[in-house]
Amino acid sequence: MDISALFAALPGDVAQGIIWGIMALGVFFTFRILDFADLTVDGSFATGGAVAAMLITNGYAVPVALIAATCCGTLAGIVTGLLHTKLGIPGILASILTQISLYSINLNIMQGMANVAINGNKYKLIVSLRYIPQAILVSSLFALAIVAAAYWYFGTEQGSAIRATGSNPNMSKAQGININAMTVLTLGISNGIVALAGALVAQYQGFADINMGRGAIVIGLAAVIIGEVLGHAIFGKRMNFAVKMICVVLGGVVYYIVIGIVLWLRMPTNDLKLFTAIIVAIFLAVPYLKGKANNSFRKAARRGGAR
C-alpha cells in the first residue's frame, strides 16, 4: 500500500472533517447541553443541502442559499420541539417523525430528483473539493464563528436557562424557566447549524443528495465523543466551554482521518456505517463500563469475601 496516497487524501479529510464538525456542534448542543437525543438531524442536514443546491442552481447567491438553508433547518428543529412539548410525544420519537417527514419534504424541495448537481465551474461556491485549501479556510472560519457565538450565547441569561433545563428540568421550573420554550429554542438553533453544515457539504461535494443525511446523527455523535475524549486527554480539567466546542470540531476531523485510513486499508466502503456505529457504541460504553469496573460486585467479593 502506498503511504503517499494516504497523505494526499489528508487535506480533503480535514476539510470534510471540519464541515462535519460544524454539524457535530449542532448535535453537541442538543445531546450534551439539552440532554435530548435529536434524530431530526438526519433529515435537516439533507434539507440544508437540498435548499442550498436548489437556490444556487436557480441563480441565488451562496450567502442567500446558506441563510435560507439555516432557516429551514431551524424550522425542522422547531417542529420536533413542538411535537415533543405541545403534543407530548417522547423526544426521540418526535425527532424520528420529523426526520421521516423531511425525506418527503426534501424530495419536494429538489422537485422530485434524488440528487441535484451544483457545478463548481458554473457557480461561485465557497467550499469545494477542487480547492481544498480554501475549503479548509472557509469551513474553519464558519466553525470558529459558531464556536464564538455559542460561547457568548450560552453565557447569557437565556443560554444559562437552556443549560439549567438540560441539567435539571424540575429545578428550572422552580426557578421560573419555561423549559418547553427552551427545548424548542435549542432544537431550532441546533438544526439550523446542522442544515448550514448540510449546505456546506453539498457545495463541497458538488451535489445535494436525498440520502446525504443518512446516519448524520451517528457521525455527529462520533465527533462529539471523540472530541470529548481528545479534549479530556489534552486539557484535562482546564478544558473550558470554548475549548470543548473546538474539540468537538476536531473530533469531526479525527473521525474523517480515521475513515480515510480505513479506506486506504481497502476496507469495503459498504462497511463504513457499520464501522462508525461500532466506534460510537464503544465510546459511549467506555465511561459506563469504567464506572462499573470500579464499582462491581465481583470486586467487592474479592475485597471482602471469605477466602
Binding site: 453565557g155 447569557t156 441569561e157 438540560g166 441539567s167 424557566i177
Partner: peptide, 25 residues
Amino acid sequence: AADMEIIENLALAARRGQKRGLGWG
C-alpha cells in the same frame, strides 16, 4: 443544577420571575 457552577446556580435563582434575555448570565 448539578452540571453548573455554584455561582451559575445562584445567578439563575437571582433571575427567578424575570425575563431572561441576552445580557450576561
